[in-house]
Design a binder for these strands. Structure first.
Length: 303
DNA sequence: ACGCTTACCTGACGGC
DNA sequence: TGCCGTCAGGTAAGCG
């Protein structure tokens, strides 16, 4: 389940293997993989052919590769945007290797070297070519607002970005009438946090997932933010979290953070702070893990 | 307008 | 052995 650290690991892999290379052709093997590319698979492939991929960028769980025309020095106005969804993988390898069972899109390069493949069992992920627009969330680059893909324009900065505005995040929480975990999963408030790291951040902050956001103090909000930054930074340092074969880097290798998780997936196992068995609640049709002692349920809960 | 629910999708797994 | 229900969950459309 790729969240920010896992996407960043993939972004770094792409940075090494695709930067400066020119796409020769793209093959869409499953139209659902490019469903958000409104003009269709043929247009998607046409917009990639002949264009050079610049250094990949990321915000939250989205990543993109700015596309430059071979014939032009002009700054890129479009990008190849990728979201891995639940099970998406971007893989780099020998073009002659066997086709993966869930291969959805393949991009061949003009240099004839390693190709780029989008493999996605559950097809929640997608690729598209889209316009770049000025960032409304404060990202800067070279003295001007940074450019982000149009579909990313409504996604808030992630907590590992310089542009992330902690005070604005706190004010937004106080305005909301919802629970803290729901807010952490809302990518328009803070991006990059998914179910796993939301539970980990809340465990670190010692807050229950149903805590009403409008009652959070500035100090509590800061604890959540610090927890998210710490846990995602630590996960990134060891290559991300892998629960199954779904999340891998561009070479197909898994990360090692699962063994370091304090809450997620640890039902009935002892809390690493106090020894109380970790509980599992069903919330938003998914699991929430927390410590009954360190993270007591608030008297007024919001779901 | 906002908060919340639902649909989308495939494979693993447990129970019978 | 095989069938069926459940679970995994990010996103955005759609509902009230």
């Amino acid at each position: 389940m790729p969240e920010l650290p896992e996407v960043e690991v993939v972004r770094r892999g792409l940075e090494r293997w695709t930067t400066g290379r020119t796409a020769a052709s793209a093959e869409v093997l499953h139209p659902r993989a490019v469903r958000r590319h409104a003009a269709g698979p043929a247009d998607f492939a046409g917009r990639l052919a002949g264009r050079t991929m610049l250094a990949p960028r990321r915000r939250g769980k989205y990543m993109w590769l700015p596309l430059q025309d071979a014939s032009s020095e002009a700054a890129p106005g479009e990008a190849l945007l990728a979201h891995l969804g639940m099970s998406g993988q971007l893989l780099i390898g020998d073009p002659g290797r066997e086709r993966e069972k869930h291969l959805r899109v393949r991009v061949a390069f003009a240099d004839g070297g390693r190709d780029l493949r989008f493999v996605d069992q559950r097809t929640f992920g997608h690729l598209m070519v889209c316009d770049l627009v000025p960032d409304a969330f404060g990202g800067r680059e070279g003295g001007a607002p940074a450019l982000v893909p149009e579909p990313v324009a409504h996604i808030a900065a992630d907590p590992l970005e310089d542009a992330f505005d902690a005070e604005a995040f706190f004010r937004a929480l106080r305005r909301r009438r919802t629970g803290i975990k729901r807010a952490l999963l809302d990518q328009s408030l803070i991006s990059g946090v998914g179910n796993i790291y939301a539970d980990e951040a809340l465990w670190r902050a010692r807050l229950h997932w149903a805590r009403p956001t409008e009652t959070l103090t500035r100090a509590e909000a800061a604890r959540v933010l610090e927890g998210a930054r710490e846990v995602m930074g630590a996960a990134l340092a060891v290559g991300g979290t892998s629960f199954d074969s779904h999340y891998v880097d561009v070479n197909g290798d898994s990360g090692y953070f699962e063994r370091s998780l304090d809450a997620y997936g640890r039902r009935d196992e002892p809390c690493r702070r106090c020894g109380t068995p970790i509980r599992r609640d069903v919330f938003m049709n998914r699991s929430s893990y927390s410590c009954p002692t360190c993270q007591p349920r608030p008297r007024r809960a919001r779901y």
